[in-house]
């Protein structure tokens, strides 16, 4: 796929809007449809598109394993950490009312952080899973960057 200049250019053009849309979905989830789960998936889709076109080797340079693997845990820890903070501030576990002076602001802050945790975990898990699958095929195949693209060509 790397030699198709149309696909390459379109990928470069599409990636920023996809990621921006993911951030919109993440932080606008309180007001419209959306939230951490969808945002994480959409953010991962940008990386998957990149991997499909440019191959797993370059994708691993963009999202190295030393970043994605710890981030899978960071999201869960952020979520659980919000609960612990609310415990320390005198509330019940995951009771966001105590996070700020005003219960409403507390709820808002809590939901924002929790959704961010969900988004980080979902993004990291989806990217890791996809790169694990692609990396498996690419291990000892010199032209394996194309492994995943072939089928889509065949049935387009």
């Amino acid at each position: 796929m790397r030699q198709h200049s149309v696909l390459r250019t379109m990928t470069k053009l599409l990636m920023p809007p996809i990621m921006l849309f993911a951030l919109y979905v993440q932080f606008h989830g309180d007001y419209g449809p959306g939230g951490g789960f969808q945002a994480g998936v959409i953010f991962a889709v940008a990386f998957i598109l990149f991997t499909l076109i440019f191959g797993p080797t370059r994708a691993r340079q963009v999202a190295p394993a030393c970043v994605t693997t710890p981030l899978t845990a960071v999201g869960v820890l952020l979520y659980a950490g919000v609960g612990v903070v609310s415990l320390l501030l005198g509330g019940e576990y995951l009771d966001y009312n105590v996070l700020a002076h005003d219960p409403h602001h507390g709820q808002h802050l809590g939901i924002l952080l929790v959704e961010l945790g969900v988004g980080i975990t979902v993004w990291a898990v989806m990217v890791s899973i996809f790169l694990a699958f692609v990396g498996r095929g690419a291990e000892d195949d010199p032209n394996a960057d194309e492994t995943v693209d072939e089928p889509e060509d065949g049935h387009a």
Partner: peptide, 13 residues
């Protein structure tokens, strides 16, 4: 809770 999207408030809170 606050957010107009009830799904978010039920989900997260």
């Amino acid at each position: 809770v606050g957010p107009p999207n009830m799904v978010t408030s039920v989900l997260a809170s």
